[in-house]
Design a protein around this nucleic acid. Structure first.
Lengths: 128, 128
DNA sequence: CAGTATCCGCCATGATACTG
DNA sequence: CAGTATCATGGCGGATACTG
């Protein structure tokens, strides 16, 4: 009994890939590639931004989704939240070192998509 | 009247970015970064795959979502579907040139996430 | 200003069953 | 084998109102 426990503990997390259904990276990947996650991460890649700035910059995002996305990315360790504790409140959001590594990979992607929408055959009228 | 029409037509699609709420790239970005879209695109980046192969390779994807994702990516011009017209049926899926360009950007991302999950602070227990 | 709280519709996702 | 059809549901996402 104790043996099986130790065996289980000792056994390495069996080198799962994002293609494995139980791989933790699936979760992170979902956060990162979420509808708003990508845009927020890229938005913060230039410089830190305040809540209101982000809200205006990432057009169309609701307050709820902005809050949710930021909390998510913060809990993943990609975003740093700094409250200045002033009145009226001022809160700055920036990328952590980890977040910057990630954003570095996201930028070319967003850039490419932006540049090449015209080459795609996306059914017109899909404005959503 | 005709003037305003021409003015409207002549005016360039006002250089929208993915941060603009009405930008078409938003749609493509959503397809590409969809839960299964990323994985399917990366899966096909090595070589073409049959339906059943994909279904097994991208663990956890339902038949419905596989079909839907493939149709989506096909209609965007990223994926090529080739039915062999045999019985029993054999259908091959591969990336178009456009899809390969895209996948080239997706691979480092998926790779990075897979390699760096450990550095993130994803709340444990989130296996979904 | 920077959020939280609440309500709600809709659709993305999934499980199951069926078909050429 | 390669899908489609159908049904059920959770939660994504938006709108609105409220607060320190």
């Amino acid at each position: 009994m104790s043996e099986s426990i130790w065996a289980a503990i000792r056994s390495e997390p069996p080198a799962t890939t994002p293609f494995s259904s139980n791989c933790p990276s699936r979760v992170v990947l979902d956060h990162v590639t979420s509808k708003w996650g990508v845009l927020v991460l890229v938005a913060l890649s230039r410089d830190s931004m305040r809540w209101g700035e982000l809200h205006r910059y990432v057009e169309g995002i609701s307050e709820k989704m902005l809050a949710q996305t930021l909390r998510q990315l913060e809990s993943d360790g990609f975003v740093l939240r700094e409250s200045m504790g002033t009145v009226p409140p001022r809160v700055d959001y920036s990328l952590t070192a980890l977040g910057q590594e990630l954003a570095a990979l996201l930028i070319p992607l967003v850039q490419w998509v932006g540049d090449n929408v015209g080459r795609t055959t996306v059914p017109l009228g899909a404005t959503a």
